[in-house]
């Protein structure tokens, strides 16, 4: 059974994460003044900091985190593989390659909107290639192998761009983006990412029953009335559009999609459908809190979000690995 307290705790955590995301930063603004600024009174500078800097950043943290968590949960359910996450299908790398191409050719500098758009195109191109490679096969293994091929190809493309970059500054710009961050994001970024994330969430969250049926394997699921081809198409499209849009504004942020479903699963009845929404909520909380952490950890350069999630992620993942192997 799903724990009774799971949703109340997740909702409280979401509210807390949003408050911290808006309330914490390099400029310290006491809650009373922050509230005044938010409802339109108070200091215009503080209002600008809160509404134009921190609020879009907090919203993006919640949205991107939810998308990565949900995509991880849906893909783990579909591939019946607890190691699955968006990067397994090459969607993350495809989006990253798109963004790197935009940076490399200077498109991003000329038209700021080009970066996310080319990143989404990259994720969709990776998906199209995946479809060609995996063909009409309904097997998850074929899909994983094709995903690895696509991810590796996109990774090679990113390395090529770094290799050929005309000057160190261009290479640094690409590297910085690859580290993943929500720094200096505005409502323009929110407008670009949120519709993609909404489409992705809608496509993935509706697949709960098909994922449950897949507990019995592909034949078992098909015999329970699941149209495997349609399920796969929706999962792939949802992942490409949602994760493509998310990665486009945040850069590569790893481990969230991998870890969040593992954290949530023991608190549910462990069926794939029960893990979907809690993973979205927990992903949103985790990423927003990690983004708060990068702001308060004292360092000369602000730490990049992708670096923090990787450091947070590995120990959590190791604990699960040890438990899986019954080492404690």
């Amino acid at each position: 059974m799903t724990r009774r307290w799971l949703w109340p705790v997740l909702i409280l955590a979401l509210v807390a994460a949003l408050l911290l995301g808006v309330g914490v930063g390099s400029a310290s603004i006491p809650p009373a003044r922050a509230w005044a600024a938010l409802i339109g009174h108070g200091d215009p500078v503080e209002r600008a900091i809160l509404v134009e800097l921190r609020l879009p950043r907090a919203i993006l943290g919640l949205g991107v985190g939810a998308m990565l968590g949900l995509a991880g949960a849906a893909l783990q359910g579909y591939l019946r593989n607890p190691l699955a996450e968006p990067s397994v299908l090459g969607a993350s790398n495809g989006a990253a390659l798109g963004a790197v191409v935009a940076l490399y050719f200077g498109l991003a500098a000329q038209y700021p909107a080009a970066l996310p758009l080319v990143a989404i195109a990259g994720a969709l191109a990776a998906l199209a290639l995946l479809f060609v490679l995996a063909g009409r096969s309904e097997s998850a293994l074929t899909l994983i192998l094709a995903g690895i091929a696509v991810a590796t190809l996109a990774g090679a493309g990113i390395s090529l761009a770094l290799n050929l970059s005309p000057n160190p500054f261009a290479a640094i710009e690409i590297m910085t983006w690859l580290l993943g961050s929500l720094e200096d994001r505005s409502f323009r970024h929110v407008l670009l990412a949120l519709p993609c994330i909404a489409i992705g969430v809608a496509l993935l969250a509706g697949q709960g029953r098909a994922l449950d049926a897949l507990t019995l394997g592909e034949d078992g699921a098909a015999a329970l009335g699941v149209d495997l081809r349609r399920t796969r198409a929706r999962l792939l499209l949802g992942t490409a559009i949602g994760v493509g849009g998310a990665v486009a504004v945040s850069g590569s942020i790893g481990f969230v999609g991998l870890i969040v479903p593992h954290l949530v699963r023991p608190l549910t009845d462990r069926s794939p459908s029960a893990v979907l929404w809690p993973s979205a909520a927990a992903g949103a909380v985790l990423l927003t809190l990690a983004d708060v952490a990068v702001r308060v950890i004292p360092s000369t350069n602000e730490l990049k979000l992708g670096v923090v999630t990787a450091f947070l992620g590995v120990p959590v993942f190791l604990v699960h690995l040890m438990r899986e192997r019954r080492l404690w």
């Binding site: 897949l214 507990t215 394997g217 078992g220 015999a223 329970l224 009335g225 149209d227 069926s271 794939p272």
Partner: peptide, 23 residues
């Protein structure tokens, strides 16, 4: 449709693997 077949014919596959530790 797959759903119509599923309501008419129940199928127990051979040597079935279970992929998640559900109750």
């Amino acid at each position: 449709s797959r759903g119509e077949i599923a309501r008419r014919v129940a199928y127990l596959p051979q040597g079935q693997l279970l992929h998640w530790p559900v109750s």
